[in-house]
Design a protein around this nucleic acid. Structure first.
Length: 447
RNA sequence: CGGGGUGUAGCUCAGUCUGGUUAGAGUGCUCGCUUUGGGAGCGAGAGGUCGUUGGUUCGAAUCCAGCCUCCCCGACCA
């Protein structure tokens, strides 16, 4: 757990007034300016306290939605032995993108770009019967893909933090229900982060398989061209019934009924059939990808279980990824203005920024402490700018950081018993008495 | 990996073409005075093996060669 009250004087938040020249897109620029990351080498970043805090926030939302559908969390290593990869045939297929390492005994190791082989082996060793499935397993771990050209900051790094989940089922029908569970979990995950995600038919790439969706958010700076029906812009990812197998299938049918495809899978004819006013052609960022790939790995890796007749059959599998570190960049691409980041309230690093414009003043300090105490007690996370800085600097920095709500404590506010509470996104100001601030925030957050 | 750039203070950049005092500016940082609710003002400072190795030269940030780094375009990709 991250601390709920952070004083800027004690934090490590090296902000920049100007964006470093290496950053081309706005999310990368803002992450550097807000002191969230520092590049260690091409496509590899250190996560400074604020960036790390955000990473944990996003990770936690992802985790809660995985847990909700009954997936069990585990942790696999970053370094893997080449043996399993030779068995699946991917040691050669993967090419230079996979970072290969030799240990002191000249054994071939690799820094995992993904984990299908390892999870299949784990499953194989532990499960023998149809009675033990379905099993949904996931982990959240660092991965490495030696991209030819890393770019866009954490959106396209070489080292990245990713949740990947794997499903194991007795047959195709059951496997597709697992697929649907993850499909819905992703709708909810991204909706909770304030993102409008659109499931699009996708290529299956190196993972293989024949049923696959990419979850895309629309952003002008997106990496790929996407096409979809306007209906997707109004849908609510949280309003999905997933209580039964039939309900899940119906929900996924409903969410895949209208046209939505990335450039690679684009069908110009089908797209043209949509009324022109409903055609949306824009750019998008991929934030999640789900696959059903059947027995592609269970056959070569001999992951078999006994069915009801006692016969050993290969399990049907799927895999489901969310780029956790990439999501930071994606969210900022979707949520920023000319002043800086605008975090969605549900995942903001702090819900409340407190600016004390006169830290030397005893009464100001006392009022500040009282507000923060109440806010903490109400469950809010608070970032307090207690530095001896000019007000303008404090305002500009808090806006850069994108904290949803800001309260300003000053001698003037104390004298008039009227404190400014400002919403970052709209800039709308409420003037409230000291004791009314936290109750007001509780109401805003529906608490 | 092909093509094109780049590397000088924490950050943004000038200086290189045309070699020549002690390498500059803005911003950030430190100190003092002033200011005090929108990245303030004045003054004084600290901060650089000019990416690196070698070469040319009386003399190299500057010219030449190798290597490295980072960025952009393309192919690849969560």
């Amino acid at each position: 757990m991250q601390p709920k009250l952070v004083r800027l004087s004690q934090y490590f938040l090296p902000t920049l007034r100007e964006a470093p020249a290496e950053a081309q897109i706005v999310s990368h620029q803002l992450m550097l300016r807000a002191g969230m990351i520092r590049q260690a080498s091409a496509g590899i970043y250190s996560w400074l306290p604020l960036g790390f805090r955000m990473l944990k926030k996003i990770e936690q939302v992802v985790r809660e939605e995985q847990d909700r559908i009954g997936a069990a969390e585990l942790l696999m290593p970053t370094i893997q032995s080449a043996d399993l990869w030779r068995q699946s045939g991917r040691y050669d297929d993967y090419g230079k993108e996979m970072l290969r390492i030799k240990d002191r005994h000249e054994r071939d190791l690799l820094y995992g770009p993904t984990n299908e082989e390892l999870i299949t082996e784990i499953f194989r060793a532990g499960v023998k019967s149809y009675r033990d499935v379905p099993k949904l397993l996931y982990h959240i771990q660092w991965k490495f893909r030696d991209e030819i050209r890393p770019r866009f900051g954490v959106m396209r790094g070489r080292e990245f933090y990713m949740k990947d989940a794997y499903s194991f089922d007795i047959n195709r029908k059951a496997a597709l229900d697992s697929y649907n569970k993850f499909f819905i979990a992703y709708l909810r995950t991204f909706a909770r982060m304030g993102l409008r995600s659109i499931p699009m038919r996708a290529e299956t790439g190196l993972i293989g398989g024949n049923n696959s969706h990419e979850f895309i958010i629309l952003a002008d700076t997106g990496e790929s061209q996407v096409f979809c029906h306007r209906s997707y812009l109004e849908r609510d990812g949280m309003a999905v019934d997933d209580s039964t197998l039939e309900a899940r299938a119906a929900a996924v049918r409903d969410w895949t009924r209208d046209y939505a495809a990335t450039e690679d899978e684009h069908d110009i004819e089908a797209f043209s059939a949509i009324p022109e006013d409903d055609q949306v052609a824009t750019r998008g960022i991929e934030i999640g990808h789900i696959f059903y790939f059947g027995t592609k790995y269970s056959v070569p890796l001999e992951a078999q279980i006994a069915d009801e007749s006692g016969a050993n059959v290969p399990v049907h599998m799927g895999s489901y990824g969310v780029g956790v570190s990439r999501l930071l960049g994606a969210i900022i691409e979707a949520r920023h203005d000319e002043k800086g980041i605008v975090w969605p309230a549900a995942i903001a690093p702090f819900q409340l920024a407190v600016i004390n414009v006169k830290v030397a003043d005893t009464a100001c300090r006392a009022a500040t402490e009282r507000i923060m105490q109440q806010a903490n007690n109400a469950g809010f996370e608070v970032l307090y700018d207690d530095r001896d800085q000019r007000a303008g600097v404090k305002f500009a920095e808090m806006e850069l950081l994108g904290i949803p709500w800001r309260v300003v404590v000053s001698p003037k506010a104390l004298a008039t018993e009227s404190f400014e509470v400002t919403k970052r996104r709209s800039g709308v100001i409420q003037n409230l008495g000291l004791e009314a601030i936290v109750p007001f925030l509780c109401k805003q957050f529906g608490r």
